[in-house]
Structure formats: C-alpha cells, structure tokens
Design a protein around this nucleic acid. Structure first.
Lengths: 193, 193, 193, 193
DNA sequence: AATGAATGAGAGTTCATTCAT
DNA sequence: TATGAATGAACTCTCATTCAT
C-alpha cells in the first residue's frame, strides 16, 4: 500500500512529467496550468499544493532536469584510469543522455536563456557541474592537456556536443558510435598537451 | 525630406528595435504589444500594419538578426589567402559580433529553441550560413582539415564560441584578444589534417 | 454629437451606477466584475481602463456617494436665518436623501465599516462634512445650543436619523412629514441651550 | 476531565472566537476557512461538523454576538427604581459593552447591513431587544417621556451611542464618564415629557 | 495611414467544500 | 469524531487584436 509520502512523491512526478512534455512541445506560456493538471491527472488546485506558482514549477523542473543530466554524464567517469578515457566517457555520456532523454535535453536548451529561470536556480545548477573543474585541474597538473581554464575545456566539450545534438535533432547530421568517436578525437587532439 | 517609403522603413526599425530590447529583457510573453508600441513611439494598431501579429513580429526579428549576424561573421573571410586565416577570421568575427551586439546575440540564443520560431524561419536562417559549407569543402579538398562533415566543423566552431560567450556574459571567464587567439588554436589543432 | 470626454464620463457613470446597484443587492464579493460589465453594457476589460481594480472601484464609488450625500444635505441650510431652522433643514434633508436615494444610502451604510474602504477614502469623505462643524460653532457662540463638541451634536443628529431610516426600511416604523418633524423637536429639545 | 459535550462547546467557541477576530480584521471574504481553522487550532473539515457552511458560521456568530450585547446592556436595568435611571443604565451599559468588547461591537457594525446576514438571523436578533419596548411603554404610560413610538426612543438612544462610539474608535472624540453622562442628559432632555 | 479605446477570451490562482483516512 | 489533501468552479485581471475615428 502506498504511504502518504509515496503518494506525495508520485503526484509531484506526474506534475513534473506533464510539465516537461508540455513546456517542451508548446512553450511555457502556451501551456495553461489547466492543461498540465489534465495531463498529470490531478486537479488544477493540486498543483499549487506542490509548487508556489507556475514560475516556481518551471524553476524546480529546470533544476531537477539539470541534476539528472549531471548525474547521468558523470556515470563511470571515476572508474576510468586514464584522463583521456575519463573525458571520452563524459563525451559519450552526454550524447547518450541527449539521445535517451531527448525531451529533457530539449527542455534544458529551450529554457537555458530565458529570463523565466531565475538567478537562484542558475546558481544552484552550476554547482552540479563542479566535478568537471576537478577533472580538468587534475589533467592540467599531470600536464596532459593544454593549460587553459577549466571553463574553456568545458566549452570545448559541451559546446560541440550540444551543437551536434541539435543538428542531429533537426536531421542535418546522423550520430553514430563512429561519428561520436571521431568527433571526440577532434576534441581531444585540440586539447591534449 | 523623408519619402513615404523612408518613413515606412524607419517605423519598422523602431518597432524591431523596441521588440529586440524588450523581448531580450523580459521575454516574449512578458512583453505586451502596447509596451512595444510605447517604446517604439507608435500606436499599438500601427504595429499591425507592419506585422501580421505578435508571432510574425518575433519571427521576422529572428530572421533579421540571424541575417545581420551572418553578414557580420563572414566579413573579410574571402580576402584572407590561407584557410586557417579564413577560419580565424570567422572565429574572431563571431566573438566580435557577440561582444558588440550583445542584445542581438542574447535574443538569438533566447529564442533559438523556442516553438515560437516556426520551421519556415528556421529554414530561412539556415541558408545564411551556407558559405561555411563552401569554406569547409574547399579546406577538405585541399586536405587541410580532417575529413568530417561540414556540420561537424561548424559545431566545433560555433559550439565553443557560443559557450564561451555565455560564460563571459555570466562573468565566469574573461574574453581577451589573447584568450580568443589561444582558444582558436585549440579549435584549429583539433581540426587540422 | 458626443465628444471623447463625454463618452468617458458616460462610461464611468454606467459602471458606477451598475456597481452601486449590484454591490448593494449582493454585496461586494458576490458581485463579479463580469456582472458589473454586463449590467453597465461595457466589456469587462473596459472597467480596468477607468478603475485600477475592483477595490479602487468601490472606494471611488464610496467617495462619490458620500460627496453626493453631503452636497444634498447642506442644500439651502445657509439660506435659513435661524439656527434651529438650519438644523431642521439638515435633519429633513438627510431623511429626504435617504428616502429619495435609498440605494445610495444603503450602499454607504453597507460599506461604512468594511476594511474594504481604505483610510485614504475615509479621510477624504470626512472633509465633506466640515460645514457641520462651522454650523455648530456658530450656534455655540450664539449660546443657542448646549456647549458640547461638534462631533457630539453630529452624533445626535445623524445617529437617530440613520437608525430611524433603517427602521423605516425594514418596515418597523413609518416616516412621514409629521413623524420627521416630531423627531426633530426631540433632537432640538435635547440640544438647545 | 472534560466530557464530550464540554469538548464540543470548547471547539465551537474556539472557532467562533477565531472567526470574530479574523472577520473583523480582514472582512468575511478575505478570511479563508483554512485560516479560521488554523487560528482556532482545528482542522478545516472540523468546522463543517459545527457549522453548515461559511455563511452559517457568520450568521451564528452574528446572532450570538447580538445576544451577548443585549444581555450586557440590560444588566441591572430592572433594579433601578426610576425610569430615568433605567435609561441611564442602558446608555452607560451600551458604552461599556462597546468599550470592553470592541471587537464584538466592530463585528456587529461591520455586518449589520450586509446581505450576508439573512432575514432569519435579523428577525432572531431583533427579539433580543424587546425589553426596550416594554421599558418605553411603561415610561410612556407614566407620562415620563414624550409620546412617541418605542422605535423612535430606541433610535434616539442607540443612534447617538453608536455614532459616538465610532467617533471614539477613529480618534475624533474621547469618551469619559463625564462626557457619557453629559450626552445622556442631552438624550434625556430631548425625551422627557 | 495611424491611432488607441474597447473588447472579451483566456490566463493564473484561490478557496469553500468533500471525503478517504 | 477529526482531519487536511484534493478538488475544480469561479474569481480578478491582462493583453492581442480590432476598428471607428
């Protein structure tokens, strides 16, 4: 039997799931709360027991999605012995996350630059990617990559991955194990010391 | 004295200018037509003589901004004799556009992934960047860069530039002539044959 | 032909008229804006061109009604030579206002003690009744009435008039020229020096 | 130990007490049932075991408050031998009730003219003040006061008392034993035969 | 051609009431 | 008996769009 807490969690997830789908498909303002409620199978008022208002809902959704993305892309990174392999894992994981969770990725991209996402949320999500900094610093200390700021490294990693994923989405390119590997080599050749 | 046509153009520009500013600062749905009208110094009804509706307005604005960006980044590329220099010009031009026209860049990023921008507009703006394809094919024929699709090259160019520009905006990194040059070398080292 | 200003005034009056009727009959919160709009024969949004919000509407209505009441009850008071006659005019005027403008009186009584009417409005309407103070001071200087504060005099005048009018409304008593005159004599006998 | 019945009464009183406070401070419609429940320290649903609905709650509260007021103002009236003293007691008691139970008085005034209070309640509360009628008839038979209807007498008593109490509340006048006594003399001078 | 007052559909949100626990 | 989570009807208010001037 479901406990009260379990029901709470379940409802929250139904609401977030419905919001993710609808915001991505129609955009934030073209998605009425009533439609979210219908899609989630709850009453409109119920949403307000779980989220302060519509803006709070999207901010929580954004933070949660970023957290899930971060958790996903760091999977197995630590287990790899060599730095290059660690970066390759990051590279591949990012593509896998995007290909497996296209809705979540689309959502994150769609609202990445909106004034809707407030500075508190932005600060919170930045923290999820701190492990990248550690990784870069280690590589840099071992003289395995060129001496540039961690942020630049991250830009050279995430930038192309995101661009390529969008091109894949719009049908301009195909992403295969081969093309992902080849593109990683381009990334690594540019970075290695 | 201003001709009728000149007055037309002037009004259109005032409206687009106001929209760019307001959409970027507040977002699309938080910007009422009446505010655009006030900011542009025209009547609300007047906007409907120049644009079919609010969605048409943002799509036209998006297309125009992308065109201006494309025109800007291809400036002087053809004049350079060597392929690396051509790419370097592209690289630097992009940063210059973003740093000089921050509002326009912000606008383009903010609406890049919105369902508001329709597929017609998307197709139209894609064409502005066709010169990149030509450039890559030439370099590829001359065996100057690795043999990957033009789209991948563009992803390795635009991806990091956009990521770095956003980091610069949020204060995480500084963009100087030196760091722009160094980052280009990373890009080029990855790409060159 | 109606000028713009005339149309403005006309619309404002239609809205206030409809509000007065509906607020009195149903109360403030049982009167939706949409119903006021329908009754006034304007669009719901139009009301917001004339009043900031629903609360502003009732406050303006309250102030206007009090002003009309004050103007009404001071009519002809100055023309009477004797103090007693001046007070009698006030006494009779009040009853006349209430009997002729029952809706307005009912409205004023209904919202006299509501937190809905803000302190600004309360201060504004108090000023309409300053002439009473002058009248009392003159009578007091001429030693025609007992030496009590103007406010007490006003309480002895308005208090019974309001109470009697309410009793009349609920059918407990009848108000005739005779009973109004007799009641005035009771008032005056109590007050005169 | 508290019996079941005692607990019932206690809860009802907590609910009424909380309602009185909140209705007076914020008004009826600005007071959610949930807030009454919180303030009373009971569940929202519990209120519906004691009152049919929100409107029933305020009607019961109104009736109860009026009863308490009536009981208060008739205290000791019968013990006084002379008619004038009986009326003086009424006069003083009313002021005392208002000064000691300001919230209750405020509540009664605030909802005296609302359509929220239904006709049944109005009829019920009117009965609490029947003793006034008896008192007036006696005085009238003894030829101690002018021959006017009991309602008029009550209007001349309650009207000024209420008006003065409101003025006292809003700081316009001060109510002292002296001013209360003096004002009673005005009342009595007007009424006495 | 330009205006901006008027519109009313539709939005977010609140809250009286119910009912499973 | 008491609870308070869930509900959804109904509210106020906004704003894209129209059209008489």
């Amino acid at each position: 039997m479901a406990t009260l807490e379990e029901k709470r969690v379940e409802k929250t997830e139904q609401i977030l799931e419905a919001s993710l789908k609808l915001f991505t498909e129609n955009g934030f303002h073209a998605t009425p709360i009533s439609l979210i409620a219908d899609t989630a199978g709850v009453g409109a008022g119920t949403i307000y027991r779980y989220f302060k208002n519509k803006e709070d809902l999207i901010n929580e959704l954004y933070e949660m999605s970023k957290k899930r993305m971060a958790d996903f892309i760091f999977r197995g990174v630590d287990k790899k012995p060599a730095t290059k392999e660690k970066f390759k894992t990051l590279w591949v994981n990012m593509f896998e996350f995007i290909l497996n969770q296209p809705r979540e990725f689309l959502f994150l991209e769609q609202f990445a630059n909106t004034p809707l996402i407030n500075s508190e949320t932005r600060e919170a999500v930045d923290k999820f990617f701190l492990p990248v900094k550690t990784l870069v610093m280690e590589a840099w200390e071992n003289n395995e990559i060129v001496q540039i700021q961690g942020e630049f490294v991250w830009a050279f990693l995430s930038g192309p991955v995101i661009s390529l994923s969008k091109m894949n989405r719009s049908g301009k390119i195909e992403l295969t194990e081969k093309s992902i590997s080849e593109s990683f080599e381009v990334f690594w050749k540019g970075l290695e010391a």
